[in-house]
Computed example of a mutant assay.
Amino acid sequence: MRDPARQQSGDASLLRRLNSAAVLRVLREAGVATLSELARATRVSRPTAEVIVDDLIAEGWAEECGERGERQRGRPAKRFRFRASAGHVVGVGIGGSTLRAMVSDLGGDIVATHRALNHASMPAAERIDAIVELVSIAAAQAGLAVSELAAVGVGTTGVVDGGGRVVKSVVLPGWSGFDLQGELGRRLPAPVLVENDMRLAVLAEHWRGEARGHQDVVYLFAGDRLGLGLLIGGRPHRGAHAAAGEIGRQSGDHWQAFRHLTDYAMAAEPGELRTHRQVAEFAVSRAQEGDEAAAKAVEAFASHLGEGLLTLVNPLDPELVVIGGGLSRAGGLVVGPIQAFFDDRCLYPPKVVASSLGGECVTLGAVRWALDHAEQALFM
């Protein structure tokens, strides 16, 4: 039988932790608050709120931020805020040619960035070494040891299961079946979370990009490859096998849209061999300079993308379609034809926009993913 006194003490300790988390959450959301405002928002007495805030200040989670009068007379009320610099996370994006890392404080402000080269033929063990070094250097640039990080979020291509294992990857050889989260967790003295790059990209759009305020979004990545991220009800959609958004093989040739750009590039400069991303950049650049043949190739490419996306857009009924990756820089050249295609074929055409996040979308999404983990640990 449990000791009633011990149980009562445990209950009181739990209540203090819950009240402390509630006060901290209000400070985090409000930005600045007085003791009276904190007491009202958390439904505790003002003396209790004062004790909690004193403890949070002592622990480094809150700080006094000057005084501003609440009343016309008398002593002005003290005001407090969440101390975002009390903790930091790192987001890592594993791209086909680049590894990116961003260090963020708990307020989401990026305080350090670092990049390293990556290539598809790099052995998995070497890529792990490069990621570990990348995180260490980025943390050091922010004046931190890796052990001080609240979380490390990592975005990678491929089907990623709930445990952070890469079930299948067709882009990075040796990556399929690799326990990326487990291996990085053994090498980095901080909590590590691994997720599919396209799910993190759409998360970044919802946090800092064009999808802010939208709950149902289709994100199309168009670079050296095509990828999809789905936001449903404000959350990245994983699917039954964590494969939501994986394009795979489609019936017909909907996802061979790059051939329009390749044909143009080969006709314009027959001796040059280019990747999908390079032919897209070449054609878009020529189109922006007034080349009519290039403009027609880009329009055909965009219309082809719209045709492929239609199989998702009609049944999902999203509010927004975001075009990301390198092709987002083409702006209206790509967005316009897709929007026109949807306007003609959809009962409720979604708005089509170009991403403003560029190549940083996956890394930013990894930062948001790590912040979500840190906040859950902090406020629960």
Results as ranks from 00 to 15, higher is better:
Val160Gln: 09
His304Gly: 11
Val202Gly: 04
Val298Gln: 04
Pro337Arg: 01
Gly95Met: 12
Gly66Ile: 04
Gly336Ala: 12
Leu14Ala: 15
Leu193Gln: 01
Thr98Tyr: 07
Glu67Val: 11
Leu106Met: 10
Gln141Met: 14
Asn19Val: 14
Pro173Gly: 12
Gly155Tyr: 05
Ser104His: 07
Leu230Phe: 12
Leu38His: 00
Glu63Ile: 03
Ser251Leu: 13
Ile128Cys: 09
Ala354Pro: 04
Val218Phe: 03
Glu210Asn: 01
Gly233Phe: 09
Gln256Leu: 15
Ile247Pro: 02
Ala84Pro: 01
Leu220Thr: 01
Val166Met: 12
Trp369Arg: 11
Gly60Phe: 04
Ala280Arg: 00
Glu67Leu: 12
Gly87Cys: 10
Gly66Leu: 01
Gly69Ile: 00
Ala145Asn: 11
Ala21Pro: 05
Gly209Ala: 10
Cys65Asn: 07
Gly158Thr: 08
Met1Asp: 13
Gly359Gln: 07
Val170Gly: 13
Asn19Lys: 15
Gln7Ile: 14
Ala12Val: 09
Asp55Gly: 15
Phe379Cys: 00
Ile131Asn: 08
Thr42Glu: 06
Val334Ala: 06
Leu188Glu: 06
Ala244Met: 01
Asp216Glu: 10
Gly174Asn: 06
Val367Ile: 13
Ala257Asn: 03
Ala340Thr: 12
Leu357Asn: 05
Arg212Asp: 03
Leu231Tyr: 08
Gly10Val: 13
Leu193Ser: 05
Phe221Val: 10
Ala139Asp: 08
Ser303Asp: 10
Gln215Ala: 15
Gly74Cys: 09
Arg115Pro: 02
Val166His: 09
Thr262Met: 14
Leu309Gln: 04
Gly95Val: 07
Ser251Ala: 14
Phe258Tyr: 13
Leu134Ile: 12
Ser356Gly: 15
Phe178Val: 13
Gly66Val: 02
Ala77Phe: 07
Arg345Ser: 08
Arg25Pro: 01
Met380Ala: 14
Arg127Thr: 08
Val171Ser: 14
Phe379His: 00
Phe80Ile: 09
Gln250Ala: 14
Arg225Pro: 00
Gly31Ala: 02
Val334Gly: 01
Ile110Gly: 04
Leu184Asn: 04
Gly326Thr: 05
Ala86Lys: 05
Gly239Phe: 04
His114Asp: 13
Glu148Asp: 15
Arg208Tyr: 00
Glu210Arg: 13
His119Arg: 12
Leu134Met: 11
Val322Arg: 03
Ala354Ser: 15
Val44Trp: 00
Ala370Thr: 08
Arg286Cys: 12
Asp343Gln: 13
Ser13Arg: 15
Val194Gly: 07
Met122Ser: 08
Gly96Cys: 09
Gln250Gly: 08
Gly153Phe: 06
Val321Met: 09
Glu272Asp: 10
Ala112Trp: 02
Ser176Gly: 10
Arg235Ser: 11
Gly234Asn: 08
Leu18Asp: 04
Phe341Val: 03
Glu299His: 03
